[in-house]
Design a protein around this nucleic acid. Structure first.
Lengths: 130, 130
DNA sequence: GTAACCAGTATAACAGAGTATACCAACATG
DNA sequence: CATGTTGGTATACTCTGTTATACTGGTTAC
């Protein structure tokens, strides 16, 4: 058992090509940053060209002004988006993506893909149940 | 303004190549299924070959037995994983991925990629601040 | 025989994510 | 002049995900 343990440890630390420890941490980091119900939909909306507060709000089913306001503030602080106020009359507030914002693109794309396939699967399951 | 509205509506419904409405919904569906702190790390762990309860637990920093127990039960019910009990003495409980489980692979991969790059960025930012 | 490992369950409590509803000032629209 | 839009804030509440701590019954190693 002593030997087994030592063997396992060596295996773990040295020869594993996809270092699991590093990957779990990376995964958990990502979840920490984009966790919650709203951040990714908001990023998606803004990257899709929505700029105004109400516009973004309308583009995300179920979100409340309060949550949108909170998340936007937080994401601006974290440099994920930029908030611009014009000095026209009336003032116009616009949100725009930063470069950092686009780094989430691939994740969002994969999640959209999964979501679409998920719907397909459910449709098929329902129709085959008849 | 009447015309503007009608134009916008038509544009929205017809000619948009990446139908935003469908995509937001797909995105929100996905978040609904894999939302929370633990589901993806657990899926990742099991897909990486971890089978035993304590093994999975040890592979995910910060998780408690309670959360792992709950999530495993839920994910078994949703057919994301399979739970097998042998009738040996002592009994051995093993968790294994279903095919469905692997459909999250691309999402997890992208999130691991993002997490790693995120660490790199932070490292660079810190070193450039000196 | 005692310490440790396995696969969890029990209980209690908390923090904060999320909801609901109302409200505001400034401006535009008809 | 009434109604609607914009960009939010205020208040209060719920809910549940998450944590913390302890415990169980069986097995195995030293």
């Amino acid at each position: 058992m002593e030997n087994k343990k030592r063997l396992k440890l060596a295996k773990e630390v040295l020869s594993d090509p996809r270092n699991p420890k590093e990957e779990v941490q990376a995964l958990q980091d990502t979840i920490y940053v984009i966790g919650g119900k709203w951040k990714l939909p908001i990023i998606n909306s803004i990257c899709n060209g929505n700029k105004r507060f109400r516009e973004i709000e309308r583009s995300i089913p179920g979100i409340t002004t309060r949550m949108l306001s909170r998340e936007l503030r937080e994401m601006e602080a974290n440099l994920i988006i930029k908030r611009t106020v014009t000095d026209t009359i009336p003032v116009v507030v616009e949100y725009s993506p930063t470069e950092y914002c686009y780094t989430f693109g691939d994740i969002i794309l994969e999640m959209i893909k999964w979501g679409k396939e998920h719907r397909e699967r459910i449709k098929k399951d329902l129709s085959s149940e008849l």
